[in-house]
Computed example of a mutant assay.
Amino acid sequence: MRGFLLEGIKKLNIEYTDEKIDNLIKYLKLLIEYNSHTNLTALRDEESIIEKHFLDSLLLQNLIKKETKKAIDIGTGAGFPGMVLAIFNPDIEFTLMDSIGKKTKFLELVKTNLELNNVIVATSRAEDYINDENREMYDLGLCRGVSKLGTILEYIIPFLKINGEFLSQKMEGTGEEIEAGNALKILKSKIIEIYNLKLPFSKETRVVIKIEKIASNDKKYPRRAGIPLKRPL
């Protein structure tokens, strides 16, 4: 599997070290073992996990600003894209958040086994986790969730500093950026660029929307748990 992973990383033109590859392989083995008794991903074979989770996460690697120091991944699940990017960016502090305990328990296992001192694991919803200490404290927001962009924006943007960026990952273009126009306006953000990318082997399409925060948000956002999903901005 190492050869398959390396080939994919080279196809994506991503810089790597042997240590980073070793850690991804360790992560893969932990995921497969844990997934045998606790459902974390529907994917079961190694090549699918490597391409559709690991390499999918690394599509963002060359889009991260060099000055980034703190990142937050909301709804990270089994650690995608946040844990993969934490392995490749040891100088960035990553907060990996998920509301489901079995997933964050796994993330703690990976953090410990890989000795990742740049990872913080949080079992929480974004609406409950945000406070005066972490509001507008992150340079980078991440989310590979299935919710509509307008909903995800309300979870992510309040955590970002002014001029911070959100890299939103979508399986394919859906026009959600048009629907999200009102949310972008309310949350003082704008779309900078939309990248149409492909996975290296299957050639499946992936869309990454780069969004920049341009001013501070009203502290009433995000609204209390459940409201952003039921009543998007």
Rank of each mutant, 00 (worst) to 15 (best):
T17N: 01
K188G: 08
I72L: 12
P228T: 11
T205G: 00
I194R: 08
N39Y: 11
K70Q: 11
Y34M: 03
L107M: 08
M1W: 05
I191K: 01
E204I: 10
K230C: 09
I214P: 00
L187D: 05
S216N: 12
Y155Q: 04
N39M: 10
I192P: 06
Y221Q: 05
I92E: 04
E15K: 15
E212L: 09
F201Q: 07
Y195P: 09
I186L: 15
E46C: 04
G150T: 05
L12G: 07
K203I: 14
M171L: 14
L59M: 07
D56P: 00
A71N: 07
Y155D: 08
A126W: 02
I186N: 05
I9L: 14
A225V: 13
N62S: 06
C143I: 10
S202E: 13
E115W: 06
R231H: 13
G77K: 02
S147H: 09
E67L: 08
N117S: 11
P158H: 09
Y221W: 15
G8V: 10
Y138G: 06
D18F: 09
N89S: 13
I49G: 10
E93I: 15
R125Y: 02
A180L: 07
I21P: 07
E172G: 09
I209C: 00
G3Q: 13
E15P: 01
I14N: 00
S216R: 14
D91T: 12
P222A: 04
L55F: 07
N196E: 14
D73Y: 02
N217V: 15
I214D: 02
I191V: 12
F106L: 04
D56C: 08
K198Q: 12
Y155G: 11
G75T: 01
K213A: 08
L233W: 03
L114A: 07
R224Y: 11
I152Q: 06
K213N: 05
N39P: 06
I156K: 03
L107R: 02
G164P: 01
K220L: 13
S57T: 02
L58F: 05
E133Y: 15
L114I: 05
